[in-house]
Amino acid sequence: MVEEKERLPREVVAMRVAKELPDGGFVNLGIGIPTLVSNFIPDGSVVFYHSESGVLNCGPLAEEDEQDIDLINAGGQFLQMVPGMAFFSTVEGFAMIRGGHVDVTVLGAHQVSATGDLANWMLPERGVGNIGGAMDLAAGARQVIVAMEHTDRNDGPKVVQECSYPITGKGCVSLIVTDLAVMEPTPEGLVLKEVAPGWTVEEVQKLTGAALIVPPDLREYEL
């Protein structure tokens, strides 16, 4: 048995994603690694967070003694009231998403295909799924970035040639950031952009379910 090689921690994946967010842009973060992204916005940059719970310009989470049940984020966590916040109903919340007003969404995934299909709402063996607002984000946000572990619990690939799980959106993912690599789905296939320090292309390929296109300007993971 080969000793398990070290992969990048979730915080580093989040830090890499944070680099992609446009200064002054409106961003919707999903649950899991995506939530961590807000901790790593580069100094001097400003990002405005959209939450489908009905809050724009979300700030930090509230301290335990300052929790207000009428001030929650998409994951049901309590928010601090900050200057510049705006509240809206679910109708406007999804008009913002579907109408292309949200610049970037960062989502987790069960699977992403080489052409950017996203599957993140249902594991068929577990019965009904939970679609929430993921499908609207996949279809409506201007850019969809996936942040996830490179493989599942059994070390099976989550980046695949074609999704076997029911999909959330077709060809919607523009960038995949994992604990091993940064990849870009294109019509020609999956382009490997960056590799985690200490990992070779061959090692990453072994844990990836789709053929990687290796460009001449392949780089080490850039933070």
Partner: peptide, 24 residues
């Protein structure tokens, strides 16, 4: 899906015959 549900309710409440959405 959440954004489809909300738009279907909006159509119901606003007397709209149906809505075409890109989501699904």
């Amino acid at each position: 899906p959440q954004g489809i549900l909300v738009e279907r309710l909006r159509a119901g409440g606003a007397g709209i015959g149906g809505v075409f959405l890109p989501t699904a």
